[in-house]
Amino acid sequence: MYDVEAPLAGRREVARGVWVLGFEAAPIAHSVRAGQFVNLLLRPGPLLRRPFSVYRVDHDVVEVVLKAVGEGTRMLLELRPGDRVSMLGPLGTGFELEREGGPVALVSGGLGVAPMPLAAREAQALGLTVHWVHGARTADELCREWEGDEAWWATDDGSLGVAGSVLQAVPVGVGQVLGCGPNRMLAALAERWPEAQVALETYMGCGTGVCLGCAVPRTSGVFDRACQEGPVYRSGSIRWRDLPTALHYAVSA
């Protein structure tokens, strides 16, 4: 774990209102694994850090993907190149791919695309075939950046790819499913692929394991920490009904 004063290196809009921000943070860039996250602190800014899955890594640059959902993300989108954030990471436990596990489907909805580029690279490094499966509400809200061997799209309104759930766009014959997106989508994914690995989003306090704020209800009966044991879990090990279906973000004065 590193705490890096990371300057903004660049940014680009990858779908309407969805931005990729790249920060220079060499020690994190060189050690992060797919599914892990970083926790960003803005000063001045809201009290707590904001957690983000790492999107891509390019040399010393760590990328995250976000849209403005509250005060913290709005301020992040106002940063100019060279402005610094404190970046804590890499945090959490990422995806585990099996060399003998068969073709991989990376299934994501909306901002759930975040951990998938690194997952695609790790899968390809193991010689696995990668199906990139991504959905959004509409075509203009859909991030078109993708990595792997073949891309499959879905939109709620049918404006691109399959009309309806991204789960309908998953091709047959995949051996390993990795998922990330809204809890409702992941709960549906868990019914079809209980062995799938999913990266969860939760409210989070510290990100380092001490506050116990990011509780994830497991079928074993315990709550554990998205920031330590997670954020990646076997989908069948989560008590989905006990997770909030949507995360509402408070605005900090």
């Binding site: 209800p217 709550f223 408070a250």
Partner: peptide
């Protein structure tokens, strides 16, 4: 086991847990 989530909320200059 502790309480179910959500367990924390950020507030102005503070947090509820």
């Amino acid at each position: 086991p502790g309480t179910p989530p959500p367990r924390i909320v950020e507030t102005p200059s503070g947090m509820l847990n």
